[in-house]
């Protein structure tokens, strides 16, 4: 076991997978000599060279579209979209092409590729370096969507994503890159896609979260514990496919469900979890399914006061827990 930052775990996993499998390539903007704007690919170019670590022009649709073609012709591309906010020029390639290739060819073609992208706010990134974009993609059959929250999970889930035979979107909260550290085994473990984790056992309120919010949920759980509220935190880790059973099992136990996500609330990923809980655990509920999420503005504003106003915080989550516990 070695303590690693979140970004170290990602970088080392990329390098390890590239050593293991020569068909893996990395491509994206500034991923080469610079090693990525966050240094997630630092050192890969020096070790694997120009052919396997490719600095692309500023062309997100090409990054994804060419990765689809490379995957069709025998490679396993891991492409980086520099910020999740810039993924939308590639939306058509992801949704119309990567997601549908297997289905539309009746299993003739598969697209084994990973799209990594830093997401999330709280880093003074403003409207275009802060977004949570997962809901646009969790809606789409044919895609898998992963949002790890610890170095341990990042390593195990990135390995599984790279080894998966379908397109995976792998969203990394940029605020966690250097602020989150954790023990990472040196073994070749994987974490299967579609397995949630109960990260804090409890009995009275279930809090469901992912990414940075999974950490904030744990902080909130600690705060309310002093007040005698027992919280169970479920980190879903993989958003598509969702581990329904772990979510439902927890809610059936506690009878109360709070879903936390950083994206704005309306139509966000948490809405789907709320619907699943309402449909499948209604008889067990002892209060309304509630959500703590971002406000209905089109992006995270820059000024620190405005950004703080936008961001879901442990305090806001703790308030939500108290209200639900008192219901």
């Amino acid at each position: 076991m070695t303590a690693r930052t979140f970004i170290d775990a990602i970088r080392e996993t990329l390098a390890g997978e590239m050593r293991r499998d020569p068909s893996i390539i990395v491509l994206g903007e500034d991923v080469g000599k610079k090693g990525g704007v966050f240094l997630a690919t630092d050192g890969l170019w020096a070790e694997f060279g120009d052919e396997r670590v490719i600095d692309t022009p500023l062309t997100e649709s090409m990054i994804v579209g060419a990765s689809i073609g490379a995957a069709i012709n025998g490679l396993r591309p891991v492409c980086e979209i520099q910020f999740a906010d810039f993924i939308f020029p590639a939306f058509n390639q992801i949704v119309s092409e990567a997601a549908r290739m297997r289905y539309r060819s009746n299993n003739g073609y598969s697209v084994p590729m990973v799209i990594r992208a830093p997401y999330g706010g709280g880093v003074h990134g403003a409207l275009y370096h802060s977004q949570s974009v997962e809901a646009f993609f969790t809606h789409v059959p044919g895609l898998k969507v992963v949002v790890p929250s610890t170095p341990h999970d990042a390593r195990g889930l990135l390995r599984s994503s790279i080894r998966d035979d379908d397109p995976v979107l792998f969203f990394e909260h940029k605020k966690m890159y250097r602020s989150v550290r954790g023990e990472v085994p040196d073994t070749d473990y994987t974490i299967p896609l579609g397995q949630a984790a109960v990260t804090h056992p409890g009995s009275q309120v279930t809090v469901i979260a992912y990414g940075l919010m999974a950490h904030y949920a744990l902080e909130a759980a600690d705060r309310v514990a002093d007040e005698g509220i027992s919280v169970e935190v479920v980190d879903v880790r993989t958003l598509r496919p969702l581990d329904r059973e772990t979510v439902l099992e927890s809610v059936r136990k506690t009878g109360k469900c709070l879903i936390v996500y950083e994206d704005n609330k309306f139509g966000g990923y948490g809405a789907e979890i709320a619907a699943i809980v309402a449909e499948e655990a209604f008889d067990y509920l002892d209060g309304p399914v509630t959500r703590i999420a971002g406000p209905e503005v089109p992006g995270v504003p820059y000024n620190h006061a405005l950004e703080d106003w936008f961001m879901v915080s442990p305090d806001k989550i703790a308030d939500g827990i108290r209200q639900l516990a008192a219901y």
């Binding site: 390539i25 052919e51 396997r52 649709s61 090409m62 994804v64 579209g65 060419a66 990765s67 689809i68 073609g69 490379a70 995957a71 069709i72 012709n73 025998g74 490679l75 591309p77 058509n92 390639q93 119309s96 092409e97």
Partner: peptide, 18 residues
């Protein structure tokens, strides 16, 4: 959209030396 797929296929061909 298929142009990018062909470009990616060509990229893989070059990398793999096929």
């Amino acid at each position: 959209t298929q142009l990018l797929h062909a470009v990616g296929i060509a990229l893989a061909a070059k990398i793999r030396g096929t």
